[in-house]
Write a protein that binds this DNA or RNA. Structure first.
Length: 570
RNA sequence: GCCCCCGUAGCUCAGCAUGGACAGAGCAGAGGUUUCCUAAACCUUUGGCCGCAGGUUCGAAUCCUGCCGGGGGUACCA
């Protein structure tokens, strides 16, 4: 199969070569971009980077290249504007290149084998047992899930680990609180509510009564030493919470390969600490065991508390060792809020100091806070927004809209679930990772404009169009009738899609894909309103259906990669 | 104190990695579109010293330095 983009890149590289510039077709292809505005060609190559070696201003270089280039016959026009080389293809050439390919390959269109044989361990979601699943946990879950699907598309073998927060001093407090104020009745009726109330109460009372901290620590120590009563209570809390989490994950379409939480590494902790002591990698300081680093920026890292109990760091070190031994990952991603950036630098440095070269392949994929108004959500303060409530409201809102707009829709409940969760998921993925998100019900429940439901709506409308067409879409047709600039632009955007998916994998930034899909769908929606897809002209109709079918494929695949369902009607 | 992140339209955000063609969207506001493929849509329109000041460059929202404002982190919470 010929590749017109490669052909043009080669021609451009050759023309530059004759002018005395060393470059390659690959480099030019990488530089190729879609112009910001129509009028600057269908696609463009910026030549600014080559002007230095030639000691000539950009417009002169571009002019010379435009004059001397010998292009494939499919190129209709080349223009040098500023330092850009702008290309126009003959009508339909780009469409013919890309549309049949998409319709044939469907969800394999963006697939690549670059990750073949490489395991990527991913740590995300990690809710805390005995705390409700808040909107804060949603962001890690949604980003992780999307990256999982993207990596899988590129033939990596992702392993999703839900490192449950099921261990730590907080359980001592909770056990103490349950014995003080809790009851079996509450626990069996509304388990999560009951545990959450206890959690808030114990932190509230601890403010006035410092002894509670001591009680909590003591109960946790007993738990860690294997006290059967505490152990049984802990197991019960864990089971109840996990049940609840799994119900929510099912709604979001999220799954995990492992639920090995913090408690899972219990037996590894003692030997690990002993090893760190004996090898001299860690030493006693103020009764705690700490590791120190050469880098003066990195403060000491506590790996065992003064009361001999383990802490987060101990369990993460053990988890890292276990994961490497078990999965032999080539990359390990921790999708955790940026508040823990320093902690992860210490963790990775500690592993490096332990002699693990693979520590270099661990990355903290950080993200900003999810704020509610001006406040940061806090489980302890009780200012958390329950994810379940958010989803429930979004689903209800969807039902209202369906009742108004499409009362004939057969499977209302299923679609409302898909669209409602779609709105919630999209709200988390449509903002760059390192920015804080201001969570507002008003925005999440507003389905107008650039939202998850907007993407889903366009998908459903495309499906409807294809149903109405009633025949298989033909791929072996004359695309020259797709002479409209928007049709060419759409084809060019579709051509970008696989590159976009790879960018997401490199940057771990699903927002880029969300923005891409919005751009694609926005343009198509505008086009759809301006022209008729199905016309009296047979060949034109065939071509426009092919374009529409290709857009549906990419949209459906893109929605999947973001973690949104793509209902066929809504 | 030191370290990290953010600062673009009334609001929420793209664009910054790899500097480049007049800074783009959505929401909110104003006006319009439905005998026609899903109007959860589309079209028109109002609205910007890209936090401030320097520097590098032919060219800076983008890179560098300083400052201001906000947030986070800074040994036994996770």
């Amino acid at each position: 199969m010929t590749d017109i983009f490669a052909d043009i890149a080669r021609s451009t590289a050759e023309a530059l070569g004759r002018l005395g510039v060393e470059t390659s077709a690959e480099e030019i292809k990488r530089l190729m971009q879609l112009p910001a505005k129509p009028g600057f060609g269908q696609f463009a190559v910026p030549l600014f980077g080559f002007t230095k070696t030639l000691c000539q201003p950009p417009p002169v270089v571009a002019g010379k290249v435009a004059d001397t280039i010998s292009c494939p016959a499919t190129v209709q026009k080349i223009e040098a504007v500023g330092g850009f080389l702008n290309f126009w293809e003959q009508p339909g050439i780009i469409a013919a290149e890309v549309l049949p390919k998409i319709v044939h390959m469907r969800d394999r269109y963006a697939a690549a084998d670059e990750g073949m044989g490489q395991v990527v361990v991913m740590d995300y979601s990690h809710p805390n047992i005995a705390k409700p699943f808040g909107v804060g946990h949603l962001r890690s879950t949604v980003i992780g899930n999307s990256l999982y699907r993207v990596l899988e598309k590129l033939s990596y073998k992702p392993v999703a680990i839900n490192h449950l927060g099921d261990w730590g001093t907080q359980f001592g407090k909770l056990i103490y609180a349950f014995r003080q104020w809790g009851s079996e009745e509450q626990l069996s009726v509304q388990p999560i509510r009951a545990l959450y109330d206890l959690y808030v109460r114990v932190h509230e009372e601890a403010k006035y009564n410092p002894e509670l901290e001591e009680h909590g620590r003591a109960e946790f120590k007993k738990l860690e030493d294997g006290d059967p009563d505490n152990r049984a209570l802990w197991q019960r809390f864990r089971d109840l919470s996990l049940q609840e989490f799994n119900r929510i994950y099912a709604r979001l379409g999220v799954g995990f390969d492992s639920y090995a939480g913090e408690a899972f590494y219990n037996e590894h902790l003692g030997p690990l600490i002993k090893r760190l002591q004996e090898t001299g990698l860690a030493h006693e300081s103020e009764n705690a065991l700490v590791m120190e680093f050469d880098d003066p920026q990195l403060p000491a890292f506590v790996v065992r508390k003064a009361d001999d109990a383990s802490l987060y760091a101990t369990r993460d070190l053990a988890a890292a060792e276990y994961r490497y031994k078990t999965y032999h990952f080539s990359r390990a991603l921790y999708i955790v809020g940026s508040a823990q950036a320093l902690y992860f630098r210490q963790l990775f440095a500690a592993l490096k100091k332990m002699g693990y070269a693979w520590a270099d392949h661990m990355e903290h994929i950080e993200f900003g806070w999810v704020k509610f108004g001006t406040e940061i959500m806090s489980t302890r303060k009780g200012t958390v927004v329950f994810l379940d409530d958010v989803i429930e409201q979004a689903v209800q809102r969807t039902k209202d809209i369906i009742a108004e707009k499409n009362p004939e829709l057969p499977n209302v409940d299923e679609v409302a679930e898909q669209v409602g969760t779609g709105a919630v998921v999209f709200s988390q993925i449509a903002v760059r990772r390192n920015k804080d998100i201001v969570f507002s019900f008003e925005d999440v429940l507003n389905f107008d404009g650039h939202t998850g439901p907007f993407l889903q709506y366009n998908h459903a409308r495309l499906c409807s169009l294809l149903r109405k067409y009633g025949r298989p879409v033909e791929t072996d047709i004359d695309c020259a009738v797709l002479a409209d600039p928007e049709e060419t632009r759409l084809a060019l955007l579709l051509h970008e899609y696989p590159r976009m998916v790879q960018t997401v994998a490199e940057t771990c930034e699903p927002m880029t894909l969300a923005a891409y899909l919005i751009e694609l769908v926005d343009l198509y929606s505008s086009y759809y309103h301006r022209v008729r897809i199905m016309t009296d002209d047979e060949s034109l109709t065939r071509a426009r259906m092919l374009l529409s079918a290709a857009i549906r494929e990419v949209l459906r695949d893109g929605l999947y990669l973001l973690g949104l369902a793509a209902p066929e009607q809504m």
